[in-house]
């Protein structure tokens, strides 16, 4: 009798787990499907034009003010796409050398107590909410850029720019790069520290035993041996950068501008809008079906990017395992 009761209990337990697992799976599937369905309205009209054409800000404005029948379902986010790539690439360019350099010092060239303190400070910074980076960016970085690089003449010149009128307020691509770079640097450093620490100690002993200098052992042996970990760290940081919405919407301006190389240094001073921050920026207009669909389409592009990233880390892991 008793064992029968136990079996029933065991069965119930199993089915509770099954139900929650199935619900979890359905939920995840539902999220993806829901987002793709919502995005379909715009994506089916825009096609590849969604990322190869410009004019997102104007299209949003038009959709918002026109009556339901006359709205455009065509959106072009080339500007957002380029801005996303530029901010993330710029942030990586800033954060990767600093992060790896710091990790090398923390792991190999500092006193134990200092190293421990440093790595706990870095881990703490990695968990600071992005809103705080946004706030500091807005209060410190943006005014700094405005005061040191943007003269009133320059402002007037671009306010009446024939192609794209814009206000140079300090909220700019440069501010976005700096804030994002500072934001992902601790994550990158922490992951690099982990990757270097995971390298077997015997490699270091062997290298030093061969009379190779400590520095050379680090650069020629330890870092190459840690490269899959480094790569995973960079991908994760890039993913964080691409998905960052709030901090960038605070410091990089709000119009879907494609920075022009022809503008020289002003390239970095023009405002930009990234895919993720566009969603924050335009979410108030989401009650309009076309705009809702356009924002979900931005979401789809973001999901596809994060898919690509998680796939590439998996491929690297597999390649390393095969070795």
């Amino acid at each position: 009798m008793k064992s029968n009761k136990r079996m029933v209990k065991d069965n119930i337990f199993k089915h509770i787990l099954l139900v929650s697992a199935v619900l979890g799976g359905l939920m995840i599937a539902f999220i993806f499907v829901f987002i793709f369905i919502k995005a379909w309205g715009v994506l089916s009209v825009s096609g590849l034009g969604f990322i190869t054409e410009t004019g997102f800000s104007e299209q949003i404005r038009d959709s918002y003010y026109l009556a339901a029948g006359e709205q455009t379902w065509f959106f072009g986010t080339k500007g957002l796409f380029i801005a996303t790539l530029l901010t993330t690439a710029g942030a990586l360019l800033l954060a990767v050398p600093l992060g790896i350099g710091t990790a090398v010092i923390v792991c190999e060239f500092s006193h134990r107590a200092i190293a421990r303190m440093l790595s706990s400070v870095i881990r703490l910074l990695a968990s600071i909410p992005s809103i705080i980076y946004g706030l500091i960016g807005l209060m410190v970085v943006v005014p700094y850029i405005k005061d040191s690089f943007i003269s009133p003449e320059l402002q007037i010149q671009y306010l009446y720019d024939p192609i794209m009128r814009m206000q140079l307020s300090g909220k700019s691509l440069l501010a976005g790069i700096i804030v994002l770079g500072i934001m992902i640097m601790p994550i990158l450093t922490a992951l690099t520290v982990d990757a270097i620490k995971a390298v077997p100690k015997s490699y270091k002993e062997a290298g030093l035993g061969l009379g190779i200098s400590h520095w050379r052992v680090v650069t020629k042996i330890l870092l190459p041996a840690a490269k899959s970990g480094l790569f995973a760290g960079i991908i994760l940081a890039a993913g964080r950068g691409i998905g960052e919405a709030i901090a960038l919407s605070m410091v990089s301006g709000g119009i879907s501008n494609v920075p022009q190389v022809a503008h020289g240094g002003v390239f970095f001073l023009t405002p930009v809008l990234t895919l993720a921050s566009a969603i924050v920026n335009k979410s108030e207009a989401m009650s309009v079906a076309a705009i809702e669909s356009a924002l979900f389409s931005c979401g789809v592009v973001l999901i596809l990017t994060s898919m690509l990233f998680s796939l590439s880390t998996r491929l690297v892991e597999r390649a390393v395992k095969m070795k």
Binding site: S202, Y203, E205, A206, G209, L210, G211, A225
Partner: peptide, 18 residues
């Protein structure tokens, strides 16, 4: 470094570089 270049070392567990 020069001292260690005069003395090679082979370890208990083979540790070729990856």
């Amino acid at each position: 470094m020069f001292l260690r270049q005069k003395m090679g070392m082979v370890f208990q567990i083979p540790n070729p570089f990856p």
